[in-house]
């Protein structure tokens, strides 16, 4: 797998969630992603960026346009230094929420992308990496 280009987008305030969506949309278009896949990806970005801001107390979104043989994809990592997720299994249950939302953020985002990786421990922040291929 080779990285064609990469960058970082800060997620500190609410407006940054909108910017993260717009960045993801622009990059997905560069990859030549189909409208349906692009919409799914941007929606997942919205959910995860909001989590980073609300639960992680702010963080960053790293992006990479990656190439794997014939496939081109967009890989995004959401990083924060927040409290982490104490019960991962619970957090990955549809409808469970710690913040008064619908509890569809993490599980929903996972369904919308091709690859999903979550790395967290209490007190050590959270990293979610997603990838969508064209």
């Amino acid at each position: 797998m080779t990285v064609r280009s990469s960058g970082t987008q800060p997620i500190r305030i609410e407006q940054d969630v909108v910017l993260a969506r717009q960045t993801a949309r622009k990059l997905a278009q560069e990859c030549g992603m189909r409208l349906i896949d692009l919409t799914k990806l941007v929606t997942a970005v919205s959910e995860l960026a909001r989590n980073t801001m609300v639960y992680g107390g702010g963080g960053d979104m790293d992006w990479q346009i990656v190439e794997d043989g014939l496939r081109v994809g967009l890989r995004l990592t959401f990083r924060d230094e927040g409290p982490g997720i104490p019960d991962l299994k619970l957090a990955m249950t549809d409808g469970w929420t710690s913040g008064g939302g619908l509890g569809l953020g993490l599980t929903g985002a996972k369904r919308l992308v091709d690859d999903f990786e979550l790395d967290t421990s209490p007190g050590a922040g959270t990293r979610v990496t997603i990838c969508k291929w064209t």
Binding site: L35, T39, K40, T43, D94, G108, R111, L112
Partner: peptide
Amino acid sequence: MQPAVAITLVELGM
């Protein structure tokens, strides 16, 4: 609602 938005919402579980 646009088709892509509708498909995504359903996939999201909403």
